[in-house]
């Protein structure tokens, strides 16, 4: 076989994790009717805060918490701008990315190359050696499983609980939700903070687990892929997971095809994750039976009430 499917599976799960974390957070934000394009900025803040704190505390878990706090802190800025001051969401999100990249670089000065606590893998070493499922299922670091649990949790909360119902109501029709007595602004701020924390956790995964170093600009566009995934997933949690694995899988596969020296132009392989994602989306969305695009009706709209 040209490419070993087991190691490919292991790789795609790892590759997908930071983007998956950021995307599942953004999904909740968008479900509440808010479009935050600042994912890249929140991720890089999470990456730097996670790294710095993990280095000083000697605990990866504390680092992850700090990454979440860093992402959420930046998200708070976005929340104030868009929810309290009614600023335009698209522009605020882009500004957030610019600001986050700058601030993260300032915080991280001198931290490159510092040492980190070891990565924690929850399953015993011997389990990793079980044929096929050992490496695929048991070999990962803790955060990989957290990300998967998060997808399940978000799906459950959105579809099975009252909180989820209210959140979706706010995203579909904020005036009606307001009329029913829900605090639209507060709910949205909570969703934005959750999204920031998830993006920050994704960034911390990159710096503390994947790369194990702080490097300026290290997210290198992962936040944008996360945004694309939410749209790809038509705002459904399980499809975010599918999209992240599809995208990560093709990214991992194309590098393996290069290593296997197959005769496909490298430029084409390089672009393949993006091209195939587009093609899959076209196939899914042209299916007539799923006519609705599923975008929350209030996405990006400003809510204001002169009470």
């Amino acid at each position: 076989m040209i490419v070993d499917p087991v190691t490919l599976m292991v790789a795609l799960i790892t590759v997908a994790t930071p983007v998956l974390l950021a995307a599942i957070g953004e999904l909740v934000v968008e479900k509440a009717g808010v479009l935050n394009l600042g994912v890249e900025g929140m991720m890089i803040m999470g990456a730097v805060c996670g790294f710095v704190v993990a280095h000083h505390s000697g605990s990866a878990a504390v680092g992850f918490a700090a990454g979440m706090a860093g992402g959420a802190a930046l998200a708070m800025l976005f929340a104030v701008l868009t929810q309290l001051l009614m600023a335009n969401q698209v522009a605020s999100g882009l500004a957030l990315t610019l600001f986050g990249l700058g601030l993260a670089a300032l915080i991280g000065v001198g931290y490159g190359g510092r040492d980190l606590p070891a990565v924690y893998r929850p399953f015993p070493e011997v389990w990793h050696d079980i044929a096929v499922i050992g490496p695929i299922v048991f070999s990962h670091s803790a955060l990989v499983y957290v990300a998967l649990l998060l997808v399940v949790a978000v799906w459950l909360v959105l579809t099975r609980t009252r909180i989820g119902l209210v959140l979706r109501a706010v995203g579909e029709n904020h005036d009606a939700a307001h009329a029913l007595g829900y605090k639209v602004v507060r709910i949205r701020i909570a969703a934005i903070l959750f999204g920031g924390a998830c993006a920050g956790l994704g960034g911390a995964f990159l710096s503390v687990v994947r790369v194990q170093n702080w490097l300026e600009g290290m997210t290198a566009g992962a936040g944008w892929i996360a945004l694309a995934l939410v749209v790809f997933a038509a705002w459904k949690p399980w499809r975010v997971l599918l999209g992240a694995w599809l995208f990560g899988g093709i990214a991992a596969l194309q590098l393996r095809l290069q290593a296997a020296e197959v005769g496909v132009p490298v430029a084409l392989l390089d672009a393949s994750p993006y091209l195939i994602t587009i093609i899959v989306l076209v196939i899914i969305s042209s299916d007539r039976s799923r006519a609705a695009l599923n975008a929350p009706a209030m996405l990006g709209r400003i809510f204001h009430t002169s009470g």
């Binding site: 991992a252 590098l255 290593a259």
Partner: peptide, 13 residues
Amino acid sequence: PAIEADAAQALID
């Protein structure tokens, strides 16, 4: 960094 890490992993695999 992420792509470089993936590339290294692909080569190792």
